[in-house]
Design a binder for these strands. Structure first.
Lengths: 344, 344
DNA sequence: CTGAAAGCGCTTACAG
DNA sequence: CTGAAAGCGCTTACAG
């Protein structure tokens, strides 16, 4: 089997032309005469020629690939985003490299090495919690190698980004709960220091004030986006003397964990308390009860991130390119929320 | 900012040696005199030199990267496996390229191109449902570019693989249900044609026979690993005149969907029926009720796949390397299973 | 232990 | 429209 792959030279020999002509036929067909073009195309066919990317990359000083950086590969939240990124990347002939910020850090590698050693032409970072020193080093990346944040972001450095409407989504959630009669609403937050946690918490507080809702400090329950934190938050809620009638969780996983723990303790959702999440992960719809949530279009976030990066990659100096894209969210009403005191 | 990255030449000039010596210092330090080595190391430091991978790859005819192929990027089942693969790959300086078989197919690319065009040195495939024509083309891959299947596999081609103990896990599940008193057990299968579906279904039937259990043909309920298929299967179960007292689902998602639908119809798990899954995904533990399942060690599967591939990559002719690794599964007993007729 | 030199497989000014 | 030639930045026999 293992047939040696043929080179441009081989093809040129078969077609009786120079390697320059073969190369042009492949990358810029209109530059070559039609009959020559056909001869070359035939030679390519019979030899099963494939361009050697390492050679092309070295010559053109491009890697034709993009690094996508996740905080944690094992977190299923990111899978749909990856799908969207990959879709747009592969359409344009780019490969997708994946690494987790944690692993890169542990192995002592520096992120910017991926750019400096010509492995990638740019990167999409899905982790706003990067070490400040790492972020600082990223600012030294050449302009020709764009770096873009998606979902999360860092305040420092003025990197382009794409994100969901976190504030508007949060406001919508609170107004919805208010509209069905809730006047005491708690919030389970994301992890301390996370930009999304702050955006959502701030928007939550602001909306409560705007609606003139009572908001005791302890009703802001610290969490971290995980199922387990949701369980803990439920215990906190149960222990309250004055229990809010609704809980807005900063992620769906928090909400699912919250509901799980409540069920275990024989509380009913939404009869005893309305619970809603943020994200609308696949499971939200199938849960018992199906979860009311703020839907993030993760596929679109990924597609947008990839196309923004590609635009910067192919535009000299990135001028005229969009700097911050905001992807709409939507309120998905299901059965985990209901008017307060709706117990029969 | 955008400082031009320096080359071996630059470093050589600074250190007052040849590029050969710099190269050796970097890749094979013991070949060079200690004082020279120190001079070079210092020059590397001051110049911030990073090897250009494209150049090295071209010269060494290696890509230093591995392609991981998923059936579907949006499926969270794979995330922990990716984590394991990435861990072992990055330890050895390899990059991880990701693509989905569906996308590759849609864009008309051929899988083997990744190997033929020098983008990757080998691949790990997590999709046993590849088109036979694609599998056939894969057999033409040079021996120096190994292809390995993980989780799923194809019967054709004798590719190395790593997988879970699907049969033993299934047998364990059935025996456990039998041991707590169940005599009528149904099975919700994976997607038609999937190798795991067959392995688990066959093992299920075999174990039922061994235990001399009644098994009506309709108790084998066709599914496809998804939440939705689990919901449909529940409707099928509800419609049975003679209902099995336990259901073994070929995946956790099936089991969760099954339970969801049952709850919606006011059946109780495990009081009305015991339900168990396969995989032990993160959510299994948090579900209501927590799901009894057969645990697959997805991280270990990924780590094993990567190290097997790397071994073949660095061993001439791959001789003496393991051909098929089987990763142990374990029974995780939670609250979705109980003796039959356990309703108070 | 070190260096001069060849060459990996492309692309692209430059000349015709 | 086509070709000869240079060169991208490395590694590695080969010679000393």
């Amino acid at each position: 089997m293992a047939q040696k792959t043929s080179t441009l030279q081989d093809v040129a020999r078969v077609a009786g032309v120079s390697t320059a002509t073969v190369s042009r036929t492949l990358s810029n067909p209109k530059m070559v005469n039609e009959s020559t073009r056909e001869r070359v195309a035939e030679a390519v066919r019979v030899s099963g020629y494939r361009v050697n990317r390492a050679a092309r990359n070295l010559r053109t000083q491009r890697a034709q690939s993009v690094l996508v950086l996740l905080p944690d590969l094992a977190n299923p939240f990111f899978s749909a985003i990856l799908e969207g990124i990959s879709l747009n990347l592969s359409r344009r002939g780019y490969s997708m490299l994946i690494a987790s910020t944690k692993q890169v850090h542990d192995s002592g590698d520096r992120l910017i090495d991926y750019l400096d050693d010509a492995r990638a032409d740019g990167m999409i970072i899905l982790d706003g919690g990067l070490d400040p020193a790492v972020v600082a080093s990223l600012k030294n990346a050449p302009q020709s190698k764009p770096i873009l944040f998606a979902c999360e972001w860092v305040e420092d450095g003025n990197f382009p980004s794409v994100r969901s409407e976190n504030r508007r989504g949060t406001g919508t959630a609170v107004r919805y709960l208010h509209s069905i009669g809730h006047r005491k609403i708690a919030h389970v937050t994301g992890p301390d220091g996370n930009v999304l946690m702050h955006a959502r918490k701030d928007a939550f507080v602001a909306e409560c004030e705007k609606l003139d809702l009572e908001l005791k400090p302890e009703w802001i329950i610290p969490g971290d986006f995980s199922l387990r934190a949701g369980c803990l938050a439920a215990k906190t809620w149960i222990a309250f003397e004055d229990r809010p009638t609704a809980v807005f969780c900063a992620s769906d996983l928090l909400a699912l964990g919250f509901i799980s723990e409540l069920s275990r303790q024989d509380f009913k959702v939404p009869q005893d308390v309305s619970v809603m999440g943020f994200d609308d992960i696949d499971l939200a719809e199938q849960f018992i009860p199906p979860l009311t949530s703020i839907r993030q279009d993760r596929l679109l976030i990924g597609e947008t991130a990839a196309s923004m990066l590609l635009e910067r990659l192919t535009t000299q100096s990135g001028e005229g390119t969009e700097h911050a894209a905001v992807v709409p969210v939507s309120l998905i009403i299901r059965e985990s929320t209901a008017p307060p005191n709706s117990r029969p």
